[in-house]
Amino acid sequence: MNIAIFLLIAGSFVCIYPLVKGPTGMDRFLALVVLTLMCAGFIGVYAIVQESDFLVDFTLDTVILVFIGAIAVAKYMGGKELDD
């Protein structure tokens, strides 16, 4: 289980590089989405380490937050309002 935590943390540190570098705003937002998904996976692994029941709820919340936030940012960057 420590191997999985190490792999996820190493991937998160690699993911900071396109977050800083990316030429357009969409590249940076894509790296942010990836970072949040990795955080969701890390919380899932950490819940099974801690045997904690309500940490799994945080994974579900994080995934729903990624969904709503990414839809909103896609609408915003596409140059349209939220209701059309």
Binding site: A4, L8, A10, G11
Partner: peptide, 8 residues
């Protein structure tokens, strides 16, 4: 986790 690292 290995799949996530390869994707990064």
């Amino acid at each position: 986790a290995l799949f996530c690292l390869i994707g990064t």
